[in-house]
Write a protein that binds this DNA or RNA. Structure first.
Lengths: 128, 128
DNA sequence: TTTACATTATTACCACGGTAGTATTACCTT
DNA sequence: AAGGTAATACTACCGTGGTAATAATGTAAA
């Protein structure tokens, strides 16, 4: 198992995981194809990356008619949590509010988004 | 110049930058000492890292009585913004609300923090 | 059955973050 | 003047993300 460090996936690894999360499983070709519109990578690049990721325990594969079918070995939520925590820790001393404060004052945000945020927080407050 | 990729600083680099940002400038010894409680790193590790960071344009140094005095070449806000944007992009398709939604449902958050968030958002809404 | 094609295997690189030992230099103290 | 000390310079190494070319292999088509 080796409890892969989920707190830091590379950009490409993340993109690959996203494809896998969305489809539950996929062949190398499918992943490659899905990412093709976004990234111009060689087929073998994806294949290599997936193999490496399997080494890290991020994915696992089975064989079916000569093809490798990969599926995630870690949950998206888990990864998102670990990565978020790590990120917020490193940049905002772990304070979610500090991060939001910074984001609110620097990022472009629509009224809709603000309202969504407002609702979420209100909702969350109830659960306490 | 090379417009250093501010969107991705390593953990150690960030920690070093934080020291520099806080003090405006510092010698290798000061950085090393400041981080000592947290990290057990060789003096030369810090020195090397700072030299590498200077190569990337993150810091700059001047010499004073035989010592290198380093100062940041990039602003904390700028780095925080770039890194945040990159992070949110990679994990939440760029949606701040999506990130918050995830964070709110998985992270431990105190009532105080929630209220702080609430106020911030209300405040931010006014400015629109 | 030969050939083309799809797929994985093998191997190789590069960049960079991180880590640090050893060498050199220069200053300061006896 | 010799020797200690503090600082930087140089060099080296490892892990890993990313990228991919080439080789091998098996399958399907002609």
């Amino acid at each position: 198992m080796s409890k892969t460090r989920l707190n830091q996936l590379g950009d490409l690894q993340l993109k690959i995981m996203k494809v896998l999360w969305e489809r539950s499983e996929a062949t190398v070709a499918e992943v490659h194809e899905t990412l093709a519109r976004e990234l111009d990578l060689a087929y073998t690049t994806i294949a290599t990356m997936l193999r490496k990721m399997e080494g890290r325990g991020l994915v696992k594969h089975r064989v079916e008619e000569r093809k490798f079918i990969y599926r995630p070995q870690v949950k998206e939520d888990e990864v998102a949590s670990k990565m978020s925590a790590h990120f917020i820790e490193g940049l905002f001393e772990g304070s979610l509010a500090d991060m939001m404060s910074h984001l609110l004052s620097t990022q472009e945000i629509s009224r809709e988004e603000l309202e969504r945020l407002e609702k979420m927080i209100a909702e969350r407050k109830k659960k306490l």
